[in-house]
């Protein structure tokens, strides 16, 4: 299953599960977002394909369809050393105006994209959560603001991996 992402409306198990609204949209319009945009405005689809990508470039492309430029206005707060890769606290914030989304990538994980957050109007461009890291890796924070994509990168050293059990 290739094709696009946020707007990929293939009738998969996911979309069936995604709730009546999504099912209705997918079912009636066949595919494509287009005319269903108003209906689905508050019901943005889970970017399934982006989460399957192995490389950071593919994940960014799949999620945003553009490339990111480095910016010191993206603040990535992550530990230098994570003793436990299963729980690595990561916070991203930005001083850029009009932030619409924040995504976090862990380049050495089996699938690079870890989390993507949609920042709706009125919501502060800052988010904290905890991620798993397989091993020492670069963590990339992406911030989409005013239609452009910005990034910051930090290496986090992991002493015990979070994916080996």
């Amino acid at each position: 299953m290739s094709s696009s992402i946020w707007n990929d409306a293939t009738v998969s198990r996911r979309s069936v599960l995604q709730g009546i609204a999504a099912v209705a949209v997918v079912g009636f319009t066949g595919v494509r977002f287009g005319m269903s945009e108003a209906l689905a405005a508050a019901n943005d689809k889970y970017p399934e394909d982006a989460f399957k990508q192995k490389s950071e470039a593919d994940a960014i492309k799949s999620l945003y369809g553009k490339t990111a430029e480095k910016s010191d206005k993206v603040k990535l707060d992550a530990p230098e050393i994570a003793e436990n890769g299963a729980v690595v606290p990561i916070a991203v914030s930005s001083s850029l105006p009009d932030v619409t989304s924040i995504a976090i990538l862990v380049t050495e994980n089996p699938n690079t994209l870890a989390a993507a957050y949609r920042i709706l109007p009125g919501t502060a461009p800052t988010v904290s959560s905890r991620l798993k890291m397989a091993k020492t890796s670069n963590v990339i924070a992406l911030v989409e603001a005013g239609g452009k994509l910005y990034s910051a990168t930090k290496e986090v050293k992991v002493t015990v991996g979070g994916c080996g059990g």
């Binding site: 709706l120 919501t123 502060a124 798993k132």
Partner: peptide, 23 residues
């Protein structure tokens, strides 16, 4: 109205935690 939507992959830790703020 939604103020925040999180899309997560399996790399998010067990018993996930989330913090944000809205106006």
């Amino acid at each position: 109205k939604p103020v925040f939507i999180a899309d997560w992959g399996p790399a998010v830790s067990k018993d996930p935690y989330l913090k944000f703020a809205f106006k």
